[in-house]
Nucleic acid binder design. Structure first.
Length: 112
DNA sequence: GGCGTGACCGCTC
DNA sequence: TGAGCGGCCACGC
């Protein structure tokens, strides 16, 4: 079932530490789905609340928010990020807040 | 099983 | 920076 992909995506997103952000492409990559960034977006949309997936820590490759500025989702995402100390400058985050995952740690936690 | 759709990406200008 | 464009591919009809 294709939901296996979603599971991997959710697992990966859950690994993003507080105060850091990652791009859709990056998540897709780490989840073993290179080039399938769009699938990550869908997966986040389908993510059940119970998992408490930190969807707001996922941005576009240019570090801008995935939602159009002014929308409820964009505002919520902006506030959640600010609450974690992520620097936002005109709908974009500083590159110092990008998540730089440790490969060994990922291999251990994801159990591929 | 073709067709439109999308929380994207990378390259150009 | 920002905008435009083609490419990608899983999903729902």
């Amino acid at each position: 079932m294709a939901a296996d992909n979603y599971q991997r995506i959710w697992q990966t997103v859950l690994l993003i530490p507080s105060g850091k952000v990652a791009s859709y492409g990056q998540i897709a990559d780490l989840a073993g789905l290179p080039g399938r960034a769009r699938l990550v977006g869908k997966a986040l949309g389908y993510a059940p609340k119970e998992l408490a997936v930190p969807w707001y820590r996922v941005l576009r490759s240019d570090r801008s928010l995935a939602f159009a500025p002014g929308t409820a989702d964009a505002l919520a995402q902006r506030q959640l990020l600010l609450a974690e100390g992520v620097m936002l400058r005109s709908n974009r985050v500083a590159n110092t807040d990008l998540w730089q995952p440790d490969l060994a740690e990922l291999l251990f936690k994801l159990q591929y």
